[in-house]
Simulated scan of single mutants.
Amino acid sequence: MTTAPAIDQPGASAGGRAELDPEPTSTTEKVLVAVFTGVPLLALFAAIPMAWGSLVGWVDVALLVVFYTVSAAGITVGFHRHFTHGSFKANRPLHIALAVAGTLAIQGPVITWVADHRRHHKYSDKEQDPHSPWRFGTDWKALTKGMLWAHYGWFFDGSSTSKEKFAPDLLADKDVARVDRWFPGLVAVSFLLPALLGGLLTMSWQGALTALFWAGFVRITLVHHVTWSINSICHTFGKEHFDVRDKSRNVWWLAIPSLGESWHNLHHSDPTCARHGVLKGQIDISARMIWAFEKLGWAHGVRWPNEERLAAKRVR
């Protein structure tokens, strides 16, 4: 398997503009982003009356939990810790499965996601960071605007990150490149598979429709906004337990829904570490998944926390 290239220390550079894709984001791409992020969000407005009206069953809840876990772990374990930072190596079936699972979260093709995140780490909370909440300043008005930008607005920026600059390893990886090209088809799968399973498990059209609603639209919205909260909330509020050169912080109440990603301060202090929740009581579900993959022989070369490195980085 290929490994992630080293990411430079944060800071602006004269070559920053060369790290952007020369092809600007098209109007069509912006419309598609609005559709695939906005339409699922509308489901949340209908969720309460549907639940109140008993239009949710145990099959819907079970499918929502399963598909949430698979797609969220595809982002946290796959797109983030494996593909972006090389926190562990995976055998070929797991390598491909993680790329597919992350794509089911509908946060963009895998190579685009990785390129954006590597750029974020290189320029974290600096000028070239694609989604820093500190983009517009530090007073409350600027920070409010910045949090909205970091959470959602940056998707509609006219520039895009150069994949050739930030993800050459994945462009050269035939398996990952193939999954990257499958993005439109996997978007359809992410909606239709829950509906198919819901229909088969209940043997009804209503079961298919409610599963599409809960395990499709509602699940995608939840995964989206939990993931985006790491960009916005975890770079604005929370605890700093480890020395960093940016505003990354730990936010405990996001730990379980984010599968451990909200222990963001340690992650920016030691980006390649496979576990983000390293202190007592910090639940990191993604790290436990990686541990299980290692025990099963599916993952190796896992970069577990080093006690001496952690001690050296602790805030005194």
Score class of each variant (00 low, 15 high):
Val31Leu: 14
Met203Ser: 15
Phe83Pro: 03
Lys165Pro: 00
Leu94Arg: 02
Cys273Arg: 06
Glu294Leu: 12
Asn265Met: 02
Thr221Leu: 00
Leu94Lys: 04
Val59Thr: 15
Gln107Val: 05
Phe36Ser: 07
Pro271Val: 09
Gly16Arg: 14
Asp175Cys: 02
Ile285Arg: 11
Ala47Trp: 06
Ile285Val: 15
Lys145Met: 14
Gly301Ile: 09
Val31Glu: 07
Ala292Trp: 14
Val176Arg: 05
Lys89Cys: 05
Leu42Asn: 11
Arg92Asn: 01
Thr76Arg: 03
Arg314Phe: 01
Asp270Ile: 14
Gly53Lys: 08
Lys295Pro: 04
Arg275Pro: 02
Asp243Ser: 14
Glu294Gly: 13
Gly207Glu: 02
His117Ser: 00
Pro194Phe: 03
Trp298Asn: 07
Asp173Ile: 10
Trp214Glu: 11
Gln128Thr: 05
His120Lys: 02
His300Ser: 15
Phe213Thr: 09
Ser229Asp: 04
Phe79Pro: 00
Ile106Met: 10
Gln128His: 14
Ile220Asn: 11
His85Cys: 06
Leu44Ala: 13
Phe79Asn: 14
Val302Arg: 11
Phe166Pro: 07
Val33Arg: 12
Gly301Pro: 06
Gly137Met: 07
Glu307Met: 10
Gly198Cys: 04
Ala150Thr: 09
Trp52Asn: 13
His82Val: 01
Arg249Glu: 02
Arg316Thr: 14
Val33Glu: 13
Val56Gly: 12
Asp180Val: 08
Asn265Glu: 04
Trp134Tyr: 08
Ala97Cys: 01
Gln128Leu: 11
Ala14Gln: 13
Asp169Ala: 11
Leu266Asn: 13
Ala51Cys: 10
Leu94Ser: 00
Ala105Lys: 02
Leu279Phe: 05
Leu201Asn: 04
Ala62Lys: 06
Asp157Cys: 07
Ser132Lys: 07
Gly199Arg: 02
Val189Phe: 06
His117Ala: 00
Pro184Trp: 03
Gly158Arg: 13
Val278Lys: 07
Val70Cys: 01
Glu240Gly: 08
Asp270Ser: 14
Arg309Ala: 15
Glu240Asn: 11
Thr236His: 06
Pro271Thr: 09
